[in-house]
Structure formats: structure tokens, C-alpha cells
Amino acid sequence: MNFKNLNIIQPILNAIETAGYTQPTEIQELSIPIILNGHDIIGCAQTGTGKTAAFAIPIIQLLQNKPTTSKAIRTLVLTPTRELAVQINDNFKLYKNTLRISHMAIFGGVPQRGQVTALKRGADIVIATPGRLLDLIDQGFVNLREVEILVMDEADRMLDMGFVNDIKKILKHIPKKRQTLFFSATMPKNIRSFAQTMLKEPKEINVSPVSSTTESVTQSIYMVEPREKEQLLIEILRGQNLNRSLVFTRTKHGADKLIKTLTRLGVKSAAIHGNKSQSARQHALQDFRNNKITVLIATDIAARGIDIDELSFVINYEMPNVPETYVHRIGRTGRGGNFGEAVSFCSREEKSELRSIQKLIGFNIPVNHNTSCAFHLS
């Protein structure tokens, strides 16, 4: 199967070829024909499966095949974080190529003036975080009465972040006669119930269940007390010759504390979390991609949607308290046919989280005893 078999128009095929892609991922192969045929879709797919292109490519084609002179918003993509909004906007820019399809991202954490100016010029596609979008609707800067396609991306994360009421308010401004594309990394009962209130006779797609961890990622765990974690982190980073490493913490405070320690030791590092400005987060990501810093420390919400080529090393400095989050974290590496490594630090207080993770993924993560900081798990 290649993209030409999916009835994609030539300008988009040219853009796909320029981007260096040859074969669609599973989610793309399954979703693109369904979306092009106008059906609603409910898709369970993790970040990193090519999900954004799975809806961006057919949306561009649908809009191109039905041109209009209106400046109205025709497609609305709702997404939980600023980073994802920027990333999705970049994807639309990549795949539209020379087509006259306009798009923009709306998110908080930056002044709204530039976004309002862009909205007045008109945009076929708006990618937005719920909070900022609702603010602009309330101020009269956004009109959603002509939306033809609604995309709910990372729906589980949006509900986890408390956006459900904002989303319900936004839905009141969108025509009921529309095509709705609903994507979530997990599909528990509450997410499925929420989806059913928005969809009409949806086609369902399930790709890479959340319980699976890719074989391209080598996993190991260190049993280590909290007070020893900093020492172990430094030990491991030096053992990696300070190659690019993504480190996960549970809290913003924990991320900032680690940055101070690493900076004191001369390690080039930066943190991304909810208290950082949008520009600071984007700057840190760009520096990490360009190897100007070697360690990026992130909280889970800030890191969702990070897409960094050839990232080979992920460290769980603290165990996530939601088992599925472990899968999302280590999924940052081992992508695109590359191999990666994920190591986790587990204290005595975190043993229950480890057991929940191992139950979810279906095997025990090998314990690494190669450190003076370790203790034995009983």
C-alpha cells in the first residue's frame, strides 16, 4: 500500500513525497478513505502513529474539492496543548503544499492580538486549545456557524485537563450537520460515552492499543530511593556521554529543581511545563532538536505531542501515576524504524505504580542493578 492507492490528489501527493514519506501508517491507511467519503470516525490511536496526517491530508483534500470565497472557518481542530496546536498547524502547512488553503493556530499563553488579526483575515482551518478559543468566541472574534468538519484530537487528555465544560460550550456554536473526527489515545467508558454524544454512525478504528509498548524500545528499571535519584540521573547521563535525553517528572516543581542541579553541573538543559511561556517552551524544544541542549525535562502534559527525530533515550525520573502514561512517555523514542532506550527510576513509594504499569503492558520490566544507588524490590 502506498499513498497513491488512497485516491489523494496530486498536489498533496507531491507534498507527501517532498516530506520523504512513501507508505502510509496503519492509522493513515484506515482513516483517510473513511474521511474522504464523509463519514464520522472514532479512532483509538497513540501519539506517534501518524494520526495528525491521517486527518490533515483528507481535510485539505475535502476543502480543496469544495472551494468557497467565504472567509468563514470551515474546519475546527480542538487539541489540549499549545505544543500540539503548533505541531498540527505545521502539519497542515506541510501537506497543503501550494494549495490555497489557509490555516492558523489559536492558544493561550501569548497575547491574543496577533491571533485576532489573523482571524479577521479569515482561515479555512483553525486549530485551537479550548480555553483560548472560548475566550475569543465570547469576545465575538470567532464565528463557528459554518464549520463543516470538527476534529477532537487527544480527547482523553482534554478531558483529563478539565476541558469538558469548555468543549460542551464550544459545541453549541457549531452546526449539528457536520463531519466529526474523534481521536483518543485511550478509550475508557467515559471517553466513549462522550464521543457518542458528538458522532453520527461513526466508523471505528483501533490502532496500537495503549497497553502495547514497541519492541524497538529497550526498557529497564532502577529501584532507587528518592534522595538518590539525582545522583543516579547524573550517573546515567554521563554514561550516555550526554547524548540527547528526554527526562519526565510528575511536577513542574520537580522539573525546575532538576534544571538547577544540572545547570550547576554544567549540563546544558531546559524544562517545559505549564508555567513556562509559549515562547520559552518552543525555544527549548528548538534548542533540543538542534542539539544546543542535551537534556530536556518535561511534565506529561507539556510533553504530549513532542515529535523529535532520532531521540534515542527517555528517562522516567518519577513513575507516572496513570499506567497508560508510561506507554506515552516511552513512545517518544524508538520511532520511524529507529531503536531507543527507556529507563525508569522507581522508589519504594512508587512500587504500586510500577506493578500497575507491568500489569498493563503484560510483562515485568527488567531491573537494572548496575548502580550503587539501587535497592532490591521485595
Rank of each mutant, 00 (worst) to 15 (best):
L119M: 12
T117I: 15
D166G: 07
S102D: 08
V110Y: 07
G122T: 09
I42V: 13
E148L: 06
E146M: 08
C44L: 07
F107Y: 15
A155S: 13
G140Y: 05
L84C: 05
N165R: 13
A53F: 11
T52I: 04
A155F: 01
V126P: 13
I32L: 12
D166I: 10
G162I: 09
I167P: 06
N97G: 13
N165G: 00
E148Y: 04
I35R: 06
A72T: 06
T81F: 04
D135A: 03
A123E: 08
P80I: 03
G131T: 08
G50H: 05
M104D: 09
Q139E: 14
A118T: 11
D40M: 04
N89Y: 13
I35W: 07
I59T: 08
I170K: 05
P111H: 10
D90K: 02
V110T: 15
R113Q: 14
K169I: 00
V86F: 11
Y95D: 02
I167S: 00
R157L: 11
T98N: 14
V77R: 14
T79H: 07
E154M: 05
G48T: 04
N91I: 11
N165E: 15
F141A: 12
D160H: 03
V126Y: 10
I149M: 03
Y95N: 05
F163E: 02
V147Q: 00
G50Q: 08
G140F: 09
I137D: 03
H39P: 01
D156N: 03
V110L: 13
S102H: 10
N37M: 00
T47K: 00
T98M: 03
G50P: 07
K71C: 08
S70R: 04
L99D: 13
K169W: 02
L134Y: 11
P111D: 11
G50T: 10
K93L: 11
A53E: 09
